[in-house]
Design a protein around this nucleic acid. Structure first.
Length: 872
RNA sequence: GCGAGCGUGGCGGAAUUGGCAGACGCACUGGACUCAAAAUCCAGCGGGGUCAAACCCGUGGGGGUUCGACUCCCCCCGCUCGCACCA
């Protein structure tokens, strides 16, 4: 498109044809497809399983193939990994750089609801579009290893892994998953149904009836972490108790936390995972309810403040509420609990400015102080965390303080600042660590003890009294694993009329999704699968019993939990991945580089780590972690600095850019924008700059006829040229490992600026430059490599090596400073030692003049850098 | 509120262990080529100051460590992302 007007001008003014020098441009519209075809025909990107070479596994988070195709953000991470993959291959590594599609999910299903086009068909079309666009950008994926999560030959193994999880229990003592067959069953359990119930309760995949986030419009439940996303899109989500599959990820909380150490991940991502797991250490303490047999267990991280606990609070859902509530308060409490159940977790916290609650009419005995304290119900206490009940210490907890002030409950001070100052506990809670006061009974005194010591003392006392224990608590909750949707992996379990069930055996997998005509929700809160007669009513061949299949399907996260393993051995029909291939490609550290957006910093990465650990416990993988190094590419914003969106009209389409500037210009431009991890605005003018650079590089080597320029000669480099060349090689090698592509490209520009004025260009410099550039701009580099006379791909050549001797110059410029201010510069031999430097520098007029008539106080000499004299 | 990260020219951004701030690109200015324009090539481009130089100021603000700080430490301000009644 861009080149059209130029040609046009020549055509209408033919008389100027001979006089006007037509500047040469990279003919990208010819060479891009040419080399893409060449790579495909010659299998340049085919990964071999030659296990004698060192491996490098570089992985992109595979995309969801939406109908909209690639957006401009996709090529950013993909180009980065493409550069690394091509570079590592040129360095002699056997590189695995695969691509696939995470294609199950709601958007496709919703598209099918409105169009009637089956999701499998829509997915196929979308994937074709994505692949075409990915190839257009010249990425070096080995498509023979493509995976697609919706392909039965893939989800067969997703189902197999679900069953592996299902058939596991977590041995707390050994801190690992074990086969369910090894579960010890108490001898007292003899009834088969009781036995099954006991086993089911221990499985890592289990059915629970708990309040979930139901979205009527979507016809499915959502995970807690998904709620915000859909609410933003305008959907309403309500709390509803439903039958759900859960995965016991909480069993792995400690390992998921500990194994974060030693990962080469962004600090923010590690921190986010730590917070998500949310470990806190404290104590669980029992408070007896006055005048009853009941006791309320509370979890606290501040057992040292127990003497200041002036009331208890139960979550509205706490089962004990109805047992302890007094007759006169019963109506109030019931009203409050009903109101609370209508609110979602989100609404409870969003509207959390003012605390609400209601008195139960019951009292408990503070086991430390012996005081009788009122028991309240309030929704600022969450049912799912800790024990669903707290001891309120308004003197030393901001939330309890606000509640106590609202309802006129007593506030006691039991901790004072360590520095001896006083605080007004009635005005504001003192939540820092300090020294205990007013904290003693006949058996134990915390008075005068520092907070950390007081915690220990009281915890020991609590345990000695038999009223509680030390306890570790996590925020992490079990993973809600079922969706009431059609377009997901079927859960391979069938239920019989007698209340028993059966998981499919390995030889019965995959359990394939049945074709359906209607994708709308069944209307009963079940998935569209519930409307398929042969799905919910059939005779099981193995048992002869009448059965129905589970109608829930797995969430979209399932397929992405293990795809990195399938890439190691994508066509294996015997197992999900052959052990020797897993051992080779996953090596000692797993995926060597995993690139993807920070939106997956918590969930996907946590879920995948969890599955990996289950596999590890069963001896199916041999690394404890799947991803050694994770990197998040930043967002590319619109030209106006705002997030790209159709409604703002600031969206840049990669197809348009490739058509106008070529694939290499887009690749280089996105890498040159700024640091890979930063979010940065698009700037079309910057694309012109990159285009100019590519054209200048092109003209170093190619003449107007499109053949090798006469300026390229088989002569050695001058020392200056060698310095630039080897600086470029060195910088690129270092920068690629650091993923600092913007600075490598800047160095390429320096190289081109250096060689452009030269009339004789040493062939060796041109060749090595082309090799350096190749991972970044593969199409241009291949063409230049070919113009230079090579008949095989530049990617089969070895990346240039740095000759350190070429980086050493005979003289270096040093800085002369007087009182640390720069006063001059001079050249000295680069190997000059401190004494030589001093002698040369002191003879220099600038220093000589500065020191005249002054006293030398101090001299600082840094060889190769500077001479600094301090005078007065 | 808590956690993580970041503040450098008109703009995007560079700057091993503390050692010439502003590489490289964009924009802009001037010049060459051209009837003219585009393209290309050459030169300039933080602020003040000067005919020019010298010189002074300058990496969000304030303090500190150091011969020397964009870099290390403390306090403050601002921005981005994440979490948010988790007891």
């Amino acid at each position: 498109m861009e080149s059209e007007p130029r040609i046009y001008a020549v055509r209408i003014l033919p008389t100027f044809c001979t006089t006007v020098k037509t500047p040469m441009h990279v003919p990208f519209s010819t060479i891009d497809p040419k080399w893409q075809q060449y790579w495909a025909d010659h299998h340049i990107h085919r990964v071999d399983d030659d296990h004698s070479k060192p491996k490098y596994y570089v992985l992109d988070m595979f995309p969801y193939p939406s109908g909209a195709g690639l957006h401009i953000g996709h090529p950013e991470g993909y180009t980065a990994t493409d550069i690394v993959a091509r570079f590592k291959r040129m360095c002699g590594y056997n590189v695995l750089h695969p691509m696939g599609f995470d294609a199950f999910g709601l958007p496709t299903e919703r598209y099918s609801m409105t169009t009637g086009i089956p999701p499998a068909m829509a997915t196929e079309a979308n994937i074709a579009t994505f692949k075409k666009q990915l190839n257009m950008l010249g990425f070096n994926y080995d498509w023979s290893r493509e995976v697609n999560t919706t392909d039965p030959s893939y989800y067969r193994w997703t189902q197999w892994m679900f069953l592996l999880v299902y058939n596991s229990w977590f041995d707390e003592a050994q801190q690992r998953a074990r086969p369910i067959a090894e579960l010890p069953i108490p001898a007292t359990i003899t009834d088969p149904l009781d036995r099954e119930a006991y086993i089911d309760a221990k499985r890592l995949a289990f059915i629970a009836y708990s309040p979930v986030n139901w979205c009527e419009a979507l016809g499915t439940v959502l995970a807690n972490e998904e709620v915000d996303e859909w609410k933003e899109k305008g959907y309403t989500v309500e709390r509803r108790p439903m039958r759900q599959w859960m995965l016991r990820i909480t069993a792995y909380a400690e390992r998921l936390l500990n194994d974060l150490d030693g990962l080469d991940w962004p600090t923010s991502t590690v921190e986010m995972q730590r917070h998500w797991i949310g470990k806190s250490e404290g104590a669980e303490v029992r408070f007896n309810v006055d005048g009853t047999e009941h006791a309320i267990s509370v979890f606290t991280t501040r057992p040292d403040t127990i003497f200041g606990a002036t009331y208890l609070v139960l979550a509205p859902e706490h089962p004990l509420v109805e047992w302890i509530v007094s007759a006169e308060q019963r109506a109030h409490v019931a009203l409050y609990r009903d109101a609370a159940s209508m609110k979602s977790d989100l609404e409870r916290t969003e509207l959390a400015k003012d605390k609400t609650g209601v008195f139960t009419g019951a009292y408990a005995i503070n086991p430390a102080s012996g005081e009788r304290v009122p028991i309240w119900v309030a929704d600022y206490v969450l049912a799912h965390y800790g024990t669903g009940a707290i001891m309120a210490v308004p003197g030393h907890d901001a939330r309890d303080h606000a509640f106590a002030r609202e309802f006129g409950l007593p506030i006691l001070q039991v901790v004072a600042p360590s520095d001896g100052t006083t605080v007004d506990i009635l005005q504001e809670a003192f939540t820092d660590a300090g020294v205990n006061v007013h904290s003693a009974n006949e058996q134990v005194s915390l008075n005068g003890r520092a907070t950390s010591e007081a915690k220990e003392t009281i915890a020991t006392w609590i345990e000695a009294q038999g009223i509680g224990t030390r306890r570790v608590q996590y925020k992490l909750r079990d993973w809600l694993f079922s969706r009431q949707r059609y377009w997901g992996e079927p859960i391979p379990i069938m239920f019989f009329d007698d209340g028993t069930k059966r998981a499919l055996d390995e030889d019965e997998l995959p359990l394939v999704l049945p074709p359906v005509k209607e994708f709308k929700p069944s209307g009963t809160g079940e998935s569209p699968l519930a409307t398929v007669p042969e799905w919910v009513s059939f005779t099981d061949a193995k048992t002869g019993k009448h059965a129905r299949f589970e109608t829930n399907t797995m969430p979209q996260w399932a397929g992405s939990c293990w795809y990195y393993l399938r890439f190691c051995d994508p066509h294996n029909n015997e197992t999900f991945c052959a052990p020797d291939k897993e051992a080779y490609w996953m090596g000692d550290s797993g995926v060597d580089l995993y690139m993807g957006g920070s939106e997956h910093a918590v969930l996907h990465l946590l879920y995948a780590r969890f599955w990996h650990k289950v596999l590890y416990d069963h001896g199916l993988v041999h690394t404890t972690e799947p991803f050694k190094r994770v990197f998040h590419q930043g967002l590319i914003m619109g030209e106006d600095g705002r997030k790209m969106s159709k409604s703002l009209g600031n969206v840049v389409n990669p197809d348009d850019v490739v058509r106008e500037y070529g694939a290499d210009a887009l690749r280089l431009y996105e890498m040159f924008l700024g640091p890979l991890e930063a979010s940065k605005p698009w700037n079309t003018k910057g694309l012109d700059g990159i285009s100019r650079f590519l054209n200048r590089a092109w003209r170093l080597i190619v003449n107007e006829e499109g053949t090798l320029s006469e300026s390229v000669q088989p002569v050695p480099c001058t020392p200056e040229q060698d310095l630039v060349l080897h600086t470029t090689i060195k910088k690129t090698r270092v920068d690629i490992d650091a993923l600092s592509f913007n600075t490598s490209i800047a160095q390429f520009m320096v190289f081109v600026n250096e060689f452009t004025p030269a009339t004789i260009r040493p062939r060796v410099a041109m060749e090595q430059f082309v090799q350096c550039l190749a991972p970044f701009a593969p199409h241009v580099a291949e063409e230049l490599w070919s113009v230079l006379g090579h008949t095989t791909s530049v990617f089969l050549s070895a990346y240039p090596e740095v000759d350190e001797s070429k980086l050493v110059t005979s003289e270096v410029e040093i800085v002369l400073q007087v009182n640390s201010k720069i006063r001059g510069k001079m050249m000295v031999p680069s190997d000059a030692d401190a004494a030589t430097m001093e002698a040369l520098a002191f003879a220099h007029p600038v220093l000589a003049a500065a020191m005249e008539g002054t006293t030398l106080r101090k001299k600082v000499i840094v060889p190769g850098k500077l001479v600094n004299v301090i005078v007065s």
